[in-house]
Computed example of a mutant assay.
Amino acid sequence: MRGKTVIITGGASGIGKAAAGLFADAGANLIISDIDKLQGDLLVEEIFSKGGIATFYKTDVANPQQMEALVQYAVDTYGKLDIAVNNAGIGGEQNTITEMSLEGWQKIISINLSSVFYGMKYQIAAMLKNGGGSVVNISSILGAVGFASSAGYSAAKHGIIGLTQTAALEYSAQNIRVNAVGPGFIYTPLLNALDAKMKNQLIAMHPIGRLGKSAEVAELILWLGSEKASFVTGSYYPIDGGYLSK
């Protein structure tokens, strides 16, 4: 990864933060994007303290102009873009379809799905100028199955897989790989709002008997971004403790 430029959206916490740590340890030049500037700046300081290279760029991923500006910032700062991890997302409103608000639906589609399209639109354009690159989109196990009261989330995560496969077909011949990761339920800030009963119910859904760790997902993201995965494109990789095997 030494000399590679990497953008990670939603990079200040959870899976994005874990991935940032691995890419930094591997020698990448990082652009950490998030709406949380305080946590983003703290992570940059942490990476620098360990000898890594990183900068923070505040971005609302649901805003296409800000996503374009993020990519331009990466190119202006490090001269190119090699790898992009589209990780930012929210849990969103949990309701049945008939009860879900229109605002709730639009918000989750904007942040979890449209943002990935905006990201790839500008990231891939920059990578083409650089002769290739790798995009890793963070979907979910709910990109493969439904989940009651999560219509918006599930629809968005299904959509990410379709976008990933389409982009892979369009750009693989130009040395750009595009893949998706489907985490199961992972210990991240998104789960902090759940009570102990709900967390235990989620654990029971995973045959491995526990929830996942951000660091475990980050290892897969790092591999997909690297040249070790040079023949991998258009793929969807669940990392779910057996959830989808039921």
Rank of each mutant, 00 (worst) to 15 (best):
V232M: 10
I7V: 12
A204Y: 08
S245A: 15
L30T: 00
I239E: 03
V136D: 02
L42V: 08
G79L: 00
K129H: 07
R2Y: 06
D34M: 10
G104R: 05
A125Q: 14
M1I: 06
A229E: 12
S49H: 13
L30M: 10
M205E: 13
Y237D: 04
T59F: 08
T59Y: 04
R2M: 11
E227D: 15
I208D: 05
F231C: 11
F231D: 14
N192G: 14
G184Y: 02
Y153K: 02
N95D: 15
G146C: 07
A69P: 06
W105Y: 11
N179Y: 05
K157Q: 13
K197D: 13
A126C: 12
I203V: 14
G16V: 10
I160C: 04
F147L: 10
Y187M: 15
A19D: 13
L113S: 09
M120V: 11
V136L: 06
L222Y: 10
K157S: 11
D76S: 10
G182S: 09
L70K: 06
D195R: 11
A151D: 03
L81G: 00
Q174T: 10
G21H: 09
V217F: 02
G133D: 01
G11A: 08
L211C: 05
Y78F: 13
G152L: 04
N63P: 09
Q174C: 10
Y118G: 07
V6Q: 01
L30P: 00
I138A: 02
G79V: 00
I141S: 01
S33I: 03
P189G: 14
F23Q: 03
A20C: 15
Y236R: 07
G119A: 13
E227I: 11
L202M: 12
K246W: 14
I186Q: 05
L163N: 00
A156Y: 03
L194Y: 09
V181C: 04
N86M: 09
L102C: 08
N87A: 08
W105V: 10
L113M: 15
G143Q: 02
W105L: 11
G182Y: 01
T9M: 04
A196C: 06
Y153P: 01
L220V: 15
R210C: 08
G10V: 07
V85W: 00
L191G: 05
A148F: 06
S235H: 10
V44A: 01
Y171N: 03
G21Q: 13
Q174E: 15
S149F: 09
Q39D: 15
S33M: 09
A12P: 04
T166Q: 08
I138T: 08
L102E: 14
G52E: 06
K121I: 12
E216R: 02
Q94P: 07
G104V: 09
V135K: 00
G209N: 11
G225Y: 07
Y243I: 09
T77C: 01
I160P: 00
A88F: 10
A69W: 06
G159K: 02
N192C: 09
L42E: 08
T164W: 01
K228C: 13
Y153Q: 03
